[in-house]
Design a protein around this nucleic acid. Structure first.
Lengths: 95, 95
DNA sequence: ATAAATAGGTTTATTTTATAAACTATTTTA
DNA sequence: TAAAATAGTTTATAAAATAAACCTATTTAT
């Protein structure tokens, strides 16, 4: 077996990795908060969150705050596991 | 400033990262050795080595062993530096 | 001696990603 | 009541990764 295990392509992406990292550190986070913290554009973030959701790595809830739409994100247990194993694999590349 | 510093796109790629990681651990390496260790196809490896060379991260020497072509790769100081700073940045995403 | 297989790659084509730009819908402010 | 802002989504474009096809020379088998 190779030293270099495959890196989950869903996590091996700067923005998605930043999003996951952020979501690991909080209970949940709003779309705009993630956007600011990651310094991403809304469009890009929207697309990447979609992918993470489709993979079951995050859970996305749409609601309203007052009259405006509010998108809230939470990492799932599947997401946590995937992140951890990604990091384990990655370590073999960087140490 | 954001927690998430940009990750050098040249290094944030599975195969190129594996190549750099490998080259860090040896004095120099032959094309076929790298190909085996990284379990990559020759085409893909050729393209990625080219990019690393153009960035000045590796140095590539073409010669002959007996009658057959031999491609030998070595990481440069610029490459080592880039790798180190990539790892520093990456750590903020994964810890 | 010729044909087929192997070595050691490179080049080109295709698919996938990342990203930006444009758009929608509502709401607030001037 | 326009104009600008909020909170996103959708579509288009650029860039990357990867695979497939190709090339040249060398061995090996017939």
């Amino acid at each position: 077996m190779s030293e270099f295990k495959p890196l989950d392509p869903l996590l091996h992406s700067q923005l998605r990795l930043a999003v996951m990292s952020l979501l690991l550190s909080v209970d949940e986070a709003e779309f705009t908060f993630i956007k600011e913290k990651t310094e991403s554009t809304a469009g890009n973030l929207s697309v990447q969150l979609d992918k993470l959701e489709k993979a079951g790595y995050v859970q996305i809830e749409k609601s309203f705050r007052g009259k405006r739409p509010l998108t809230t994100c939470k990492i799932t247990q599947v997401g946590v596991k995937a992140f951890e194993s990604y990091v384990e694999n990655l370590k073999k590349y960087i140490t």
